[in-house]
Amino acid sequence: MSLPPLREVIAAHGLSASKALGQNFLFDEHLLDRIAAIPGDLTGRNVLEVGPGPGGLTRALLRAGAQVTAIERDARCLPVLADLSDAFPGQLRVIEGDALKIRGDDLFDQPYAVVANLPYNVGTALFTQWLSGQAWPPRWTSLTLMFQQEVAQRIVAQPGGSTFGRLAVLAQWRSSARLAMKVHRSAFTPPPKVMSAMVHVEPATMPEGVSARMLERVTEAAFGQRRKMLRQSLKALPGAVEALPALDIDPQRRAETLSIDEFVALARSLS
């Protein structure tokens, strides 16, 4: 179905991006179609979108054949999304609310993919929420998410560099994470001060005998004082420093030098 250009729709509804809600709108239909293609064929698949705003990415997901459930807290955008729902009968469900308080698993009876141009102010919190918890594999089949490029690089970082930290361990210890696409700041309205990037995450096999909460505690302690040696940073975690020699981990190393397997082994020994 032919739809009016997004810029015309936004002008007609008197919309503007809300800084308080971390909004930055995307208008480039070609770019949005490329983003919608990252998780693969979406025909008939359930997709959760967070913060659709005026529905640019939503349009692309609907064109790709997805069954979209969109969570939007900005009431100004609801009439635009209602028009979009009319244009794609039976494909779009819009829920007004705060995505931090709504569990995706409660919205779907079947597996679902998450695809979103996340509001900058809640992106990391939502990402952490989706990747946390002991239950694995998750109900979601993939996460395809827009972040500030700096955050995206931290998610896919490898050990040994300054960008490697808690986000990388969380994203990679039982998932695969890759940088799928860089997006120039000029693609957004209004243009943010920083560059952006799409990250694509898929669940992998969870290592046996590891408590997800313990791994979170280990990384919290280790990276909470990342400039200090492990013998100092892990002091607050009972038994952690004592466990290092048995795992062939030098207590004089710093957190960013440990591999994800070493973090997993330490968490397993303390679980």
Rank of each mutant, 00 (worst) to 15 (best):
S2A: 15
S2T: 15
P4F: 04
P4L: 12
P5S: 02
L6T: 07
L6H: 05
R7L: 08
E8S: 15
V9M: 13
V9R: 14
I10L: 14
A12K: 11
H13I: 08
S16I: 09
A17P: 05
G22K: 04
Q23V: 04
N24E: 04
L26Y: 06
L31I: 12
L31W: 14
A36E: 06
I38P: 05
R45Q: 14
E49W: 02
E49F: 01
V50L: 06
G53W: 02
P54G: 02
P54E: 10
L57F: 00
L61Y: 06
R63G: 03
R63S: 07
A66M: 00
Q67R: 15
V68M: 01
A70R: 01
D74A: 04
D74V: 01
A75R: 13
R76G: 06
P79D: 00
P79I: 02
L81M: 09
D83G: 13
D86C: 11
A87T: 07
R93P: 07
D98E: 04
G104L: 01
G104C: 00
Q110L: 12
A116N: 00
N117Y: 00
P119R: 08
Y120L: 00
N121S: 12
N121K: 09
G123S: 07
A125M: 13
F127L: 15
F127V: 08
Q134Y: 09
P138F: 00
M146H: 11
M146K: 04
Q148I: 05
V151F: 07
Q153S: 05
A157I: 01
G161K: 11
T163F: 11
R166I: 11
R166T: 12
L167M: 01
L170I: 11
S175Q: 14
A177C: 09
R178H: 13
L179M: 08
L179G: 13
L179W: 10
A180K: 03
V183D: 07
V183S: 04
H184Y: 10
R185H: 08
F188Y: 13
T189C: 13
P191Q: 12
V194W: 01
S196L: 03
M198L: 11
M198Y: 01
V201E: 01
P203M: 06
S211K: 02
M214Y: 10
L215R: 07
E216M: 12
R217P: 02
V218M: 05
T219G: 09
A222F: 09
F223L: 00
F223E: 06
R227F: 05
M229R: 14
R231W: 03
R231Q: 13
R231V: 07
Q232W: 12
Q232I: 14
S233L: 02
S233Y: 05
L234S: 06
A236G: 14
G239T: 05
A240M: 03
V241H: 11
E242Q: 15
E242I: 02
P245A: 07
P245S: 08
A246Y: 06
L247C: 01
I249G: 08
P251F: 09
R254K: 12
A255W: 13
A255E: 11
A255G: 14
E256T: 03
L258D: 03
L258V: 05
S259Q: 04
I260T: 10
E262T: 09
E262C: 05
F263S: 03
V264L: 10
A265F: 01
R268A: 15
R268Q: 02
S269K: 13
L270N: 04
S271D: 10
